[in-house]
Each structure stands twice: as structure tokens, then as C-alpha cells.
Measured scan of single mutants.
Amino acid sequence: SIVTKIISIVQERQNMDDGAPVKTRDIADAAGLSIYQVRLYLEQLHDVGVLEKVNAGKGVPGLWRLL
């Protein structure tokens, strides 16, 4: 499923980069989806406690990390 793919992308990127959070844009590119589509999935995963959003604010790139 797309959700499983997104989780594995975040996991893979974090492992490659010493646990650093992953940008929404990088996840979207790797999943082959638009940034808006991916954001909806990321928000859902956040709501159920799978991911945390590391930063927030208007015009700030979203950074995500697995919990």
C-alpha cells in the first residue's frame, strides 16, 4: 500500500542520514506522488502516532520522523 511505502521511505532515509528527519518533498519524490497527496498521508500517520512532525510554520518545509 502507499502508506507502507511512505513508512519504508522515511525509515530508509532516516537510516541513511543518522536519524535525521525527512522532508515532505523528498518523501513525495521517492513515492512518485505530489507533495499534497503525501502530506495527507503523513498527517494521517501522525494522527495515529506513527510519525512526528519535527517542525511547523507557514512556508517551512515539513520534516518528519518515525516514532
Rank of each mutant, 00 (worst) to 15 (best):
Y36D: 13
I9Y: 13
Q14C: 06
E12P: 00
T24F: 02
Q37A: 11
P61W: 12
K58Y: 07
Q11V: 08
L51E: 02
A30R: 07
E43S: 05
G32F: 03
D47N: 13
L40M: 12
L45S: 00
D18N: 15
A28C: 03
K53N: 15
A30F: 04
I9K: 01
A31F: 03
V54P: 01
G57Y: 06
A20W: 05
L51S: 02
L51H: 00
H46N: 07
V22Q: 04
D17Q: 15
L67D: 04
L40R: 13
I27W: 01
R13Y: 11
N15K: 12
S34L: 04
N15D: 09
I35L: 11
I9F: 14
V48K: 13
G19H: 06
A20P: 04
T4Y: 13
A28H: 15
L67N: 13
T4I: 14
I2S: 03
V48H: 11
V60N: 13
P61R: 11
L67T: 15
G59P: 05
V22T: 05
V3D: 02
I2N: 04
W64F: 01
I2D: 04
G62E: 15
D18V: 06
L42T: 05
A20V: 07
D17W: 13
R13C: 08
I7Q: 03
Y36E: 14
R13H: 07
S34E: 07
N15M: 13
G49K: 04
D29W: 07
Q14D: 03
Q37D: 09
R25D: 10
E43Y: 08
S1C: 14
S8D: 07
S34G: 07
Q37R: 10
N15V: 09
V10A: 01
E12D: 09
D47R: 15
K5G: 04
L67K: 14
T24N: 02
L63Y: 09
H46K: 13
N15E: 11
R65H: 05
I7S: 01
G59D: 09
A20F: 07
M16A: 12
W64Q: 00
M16L: 12
L66F: 09
L63S: 10
D17I: 11
I7T: 03
N55Y: 12
V38K: 00
E43T: 06
E52A: 06
Q14A: 07
G32S: 06
K23H: 09
P61N: 14
I27G: 00
A30I: 06
S1W: 13
I7R: 03
V60Y: 12
I9A: 06
R65I: 09
Q44P: 02
R65K: 09
G19Q: 06
A20M: 09
K53T: 03
S34P: 13
N15H: 10
G19R: 06
T4M: 13
L45D: 01
A56E: 10
I35D: 06
T4L: 13
G19T: 04
V50S: 03
E52K: 05
G49V: 02
I2A: 04
V50E: 01
S1H: 12
V48A: 15
L66G: 02
K5H: 09
A28S: 04
L63A: 13
K53G: 03
E52Y: 05
R13P: 02
A30P: 01
P21Y: 10
E12T: 11
L45K: 02
G19K: 05
N55S: 12
L63E: 14
Y36S: 13
L40D: 06
Q14M: 13
G32R: 06
R25E: 14
A20Y: 10
Q11Y: 12
I2T: 06
T4K: 14
L40K: 14
I35F: 09
L63N: 05
V38S: 03
V60L: 12
Q37H: 09
L67C: 13
R25L: 08
L33P: 00
V48P: 00
A56I: 11
G32K: 08
Q44M: 15
G62M: 12
A56Q: 12
G57E: 09
Q11L: 11
T4N: 13
A56M: 09
V60G: 15
A31T: 08
L42E: 00
I35T: 07
R13F: 14
R25I: 10
T24K: 01
S34K: 06
W64N: 01
G19D: 07
V3M: 14
V38I: 09
A56T: 12
D18M: 10
L66W: 08
L63M: 12
I35Y: 09
Q37N: 06
K5D: 04
D18H: 14
A20H: 10
V22Y: 02
V22W: 04
T24L: 03
V3L: 14
H46M: 10
V3P: 03
Q14N: 06
Y36L: 10
V60A: 13
Q11S: 09
L66A: 05
V10Q: 00
S34F: 12
G57P: 07
L45F: 01
A56K: 07
L42D: 00
G49L: 03
Q44N: 07
V22A: 05
D26L: 04
E12S: 09
G32P: 01
I35R: 04
D26S: 04
V48L: 15
I35A: 05
T24R: 01
V3C: 12
K5R: 13
I35Q: 05
Q37S: 08
I6K: 00
D26N: 03
L33M: 13
D47C: 13
E12N: 09
S34M: 04
V60K: 15
V50N: 01
N15R: 12
G62P: 15
E52D: 04
P61L: 11
P21G: 15
D26Q: 05
D47L: 14
V10F: 15
D26K: 03
I7Y: 06
V60C: 11
Q14L: 05
G59W: 04
Q44L: 14
K5N: 08
D47H: 14
W64H: 01
V60P: 10
E52C: 06
G49W: 03
T24A: 05
L63K: 07
I7P: 01
G59L: 05
A30D: 09
L42M: 03
Y41D: 00
K58W: 03
G49E: 02
E12G: 06
V50L: 11
V50A: 04
G49R: 04
S1D: 13
I6S: 00
L67G: 11
A28F: 02
A28V: 03
R25H: 08
A20D: 09
Q11K: 14
A20I: 07
I2P: 03
V3Q: 09
L42R: 00
E43F: 06
V48C: 14
S1F: 10
L51R: 00
E12I: 09
A28Y: 02
L42G: 00
R25M: 10
V10M: 15
Q11I: 11
Q37E: 13
Q37M: 13
S8R: 13
V54S: 03
K53H: 05
D26G: 01
L63W: 06
R13M: 12
L66H: 04
Q11R: 14
T4R: 14
K5L: 12
S34H: 07
G19V: 03
R65W: 11
G62D: 14
A20G: 09
S34V: 08
A30K: 07
L42Y: 00
G59A: 06
D17F: 15
A30L: 07
W64D: 01
V48M: 15
L33I: 10
H46D: 03
E43G: 06
S8N: 12
R39M: 15
L51V: 09
T24C: 04
I6M: 03
N15Q: 12
I9W: 04
V22D: 01
G19Y: 15
R39D: 06
S8C: 14
Q37W: 09
D47V: 12
L42N: 00
I27R: 01
I9D: 00
D18C: 11
L33G: 01
I35N: 15
A31L: 15
A56Y: 09
A30W: 04
A30Q: 10
R25K: 14
V3S: 07
L67F: 09
V10H: 00
K5W: 08
A56N: 12
G59K: 06
V54R: 01
A28D: 03
R39E: 14
K58I: 11
V3G: 04
A30N: 05
V38L: 05
H46Q: 12
L66P: 03
R25S: 12
L33Y: 04
A30G: 07
G49P: 05
E52S: 06
Y41A: 05
G62I: 15
V54F: 04
R13T: 03
P21M: 05
I6E: 02
D29H: 10
P21W: 15
D29M: 13
V60R: 14
V10P: 00
A56V: 12
D26H: 06
N15S: 10
H46W: 12
R39G: 11
D26M: 04
H46R: 15
A31P: 01
D17H: 15
W64C: 03
G32M: 06
V3T: 08
I9L: 05
W64R: 01
V38E: 00
W64P: 06
N55W: 09
I27D: 02
S1N: 12
K53F: 06
A31Y: 02
D47K: 15
S1P: 08
K23W: 05
L51N: 02
A28E: 03
V54A: 04
V54M: 05
M16H: 11
M16I: 09
R25P: 04
L45A: 02
G59Y: 06
S1V: 10
N55K: 09
G32E: 05
G32W: 03
R13K: 11
D29K: 13
G19L: 05
A56P: 11
L51M: 12
P21R: 02
K23L: 07
G19A: 04
R25W: 07
E52M: 08
